[in-house]
Amino acid sequence: MSFEVLTYGFMQRAILTGAIIAILSSVIGLFLVLRRYSLFGDALAHSSFGGIALGLFAGVYPLWTAYGVSILSALIITKIKTRYNISGDASIAVLLSSGIAAGLVIISFSGGFTLDIFSFLFGSILLVSVNDTVVIAALAGAILMVILLFFRQILYSTFNEKQAKVSGIPVEKINYLLIILAGLTVVTSIQLVGVLLISALFVIPNVTAIMYGRSFKQTMFISMSFSVLSVVSGILISYVFDITPAGTIVIFSVALLAITMGIKSAGLLSKN
């Protein structure tokens, strides 16, 4: 592979957009993983599939309907969980399957699978336009800004809800905020790896980083680095072998995790 590939506009856009999404999803993902909400991203992505189908069916830009459905599902799942005392994993399972089911029904009505649907299922990072990149960058910037603004509150309520409450942090509101941000992030990330592989972006770099990091910020930084490295490498590898980038991105990040586990087993990492 020569460096010529980096001069192509589509490749520059893919790498830039991919890196932005990598940073965003690893930051949100770290909070979700520590809250034992690892599959939450997956559930939101699957439910947003229903939203995408709805958009395609109604002739609206599918990601907009996906944003709506994703945020709505995030709020519903949280409400159901607390109101009816259903466990976290069960409510995630309900959301996950109902999103796909709704999507399938809508797609069947609109005449079956099209190319569009596949690009949402498996990502289409090489097809992003300048316009897409700008929108994604702006959205990511806004989400990260909100996280920075409420960083202590989100971290504290992730660490221990009860103690955060005692310290005067409005834990319920913070939880809703985080969940809405997760919903926005999931739909934004769909273009990179698609509905089916989103939880990989949320979970794998963080699980890896937790084994290295000492402080919280250090862990977050390591996770972002692994995430960006996986996305950029994955895109380049996929170009060389002419295969779909979603797969190579995720496999690259799994490889980083496997190497880390190897290092840890060899006793080279002293963490618990």
Binding site: L34, R152, L155, Y156, F159, N160, K162, Q163, A164, S167, A209, I210, G213, R214, S215, F216, K217, Q218, T219, K271, N272
Partner: peptide
């Protein structure tokens, strides 16, 4: 609290934990 409850692998240092309350 009676028992400090947190995930055992929570990536936070002693300073991080005190800072949360600041």
């Amino acid at each position: 609290p009676q028992r400090p409850e947190f995930e055992n692998n929570f990536p936070a240092t002693v300073s991080d934990v005190v800072r949360m309350a600041l």
